[in-house]
């Protein structure tokens, strides 16, 4: 079953999963946008501009980071291959573009983040599945009965753990009721995602190390968890006059 899935979505076809997730996530987010006082049209445009900026920014950042290579071959800038791409640069470009667009459209930050949450939650599920298809984010060797054979060893199926955790997170954020304080839904999603990334990071076999000892992904997830819990507490403390919310209450 897993082999069939991996054959069907072998790279670069694993990107189909992400494209499908963008479509599904955007549809679901637009459906719920009004609940967060954001128009579906504005949210759709925000996602569209963010995606365009992600694609262009990722390519431009990669080109700037490898300037000598692109000076030798400038036409490669327009190559359709996905390898000439830096996700970090793409992410920064997407966030900046969405901030500028949101400001111009006078979108409330926390309401918009809440409205975007279903989109992000679906993307997180697809990311786990794309890891499974590509065999990346693989697990440590184990002799547990549910181990999967990958890269010449029986390993923790970390990509499946990741997909299931993301699916549960999606289920939770989709069923939570709206809160009087905007932003709590988004912060709940971020805290949960960082929490399971931190937990599952212990089973990853591909971790880069921080200070040559600690898995970098886990350290990053802990920092995100700390910030999201801090912001959550800050948002909730401002609730005391406005009444209680329902998320993580």
């Amino acid at each position: 079953m897993i082999e069939l899935f991996r054959s069907l979505f072998t790279p670069p076809r694993h990107l189909i999963l992400l494209v499908a997730a963008v479509w599904l996530g955007q549809s679901l987010a637009e459906k719920r946008a009004a609940r967060h006082q954001v128009s579906a049209e504005a949210l759709g445009n925000l996602i569209f501009y963010g995606l365009v900026a992600f694609i262009l920014g990722g390519r431009l950042y990669y080109a700037l980071s490898h300037l000598a290579a692109f000076v030798k071959s400038p036409l490669s800038l327009f190559d359709i291959g996905v390898s000439l791409f830096d996700p970090f640069g793409g992410g920064v470009a997407a966030v900046l573009t969405m901030l500028v667009y949101g400001r111009r459209q006078k979108l409330e930050l926390w309401n918009t983040l809440d409205a975007l949450t279903p989109f992000l939650a679906v993307l997180a599920v697809a990311l786990g599945l794309s890891h499974l298809a590509a065999g990346t984010a693989y697990g440590r060797p184990t002799d547990l009965p549910w181990a999967i054979p990958l890269w010449n060893a029986d390993r923790h199926p970390t990509q499946i753990y990741e997909s299931l955790a993301a699916l549960l997170t999606f289920g939770l954020v989709w069923t939570l009721k709206p809160t009087p304080r905007p932003g709590l839904l988004f912060l709940t999603f971020i805290a949960l995602t960082a929490g399971w990334q931190l937990f599952l990071g212990a089973y990853r076999g591909d971790a880069s190390l921080f200070m040559e000892k600690f898995p970098l992904d886990q350290v990053g997830a802990w920092a995100v968890l700390a910030v999201s819990l801090g912001l959550y507490e800050w948002r909730r403390s401002r609730d005391q006059q406005a009444g209680d919310g329902n998320v993580l209450s």
Partner: peptide, 15 residues
Amino acid sequence: VSGPMSEALLYARIE
């Protein structure tokens, strides 16, 4: 890399 490689990709990775 799965799929065709461009010149820039080859230069970048090899350098």
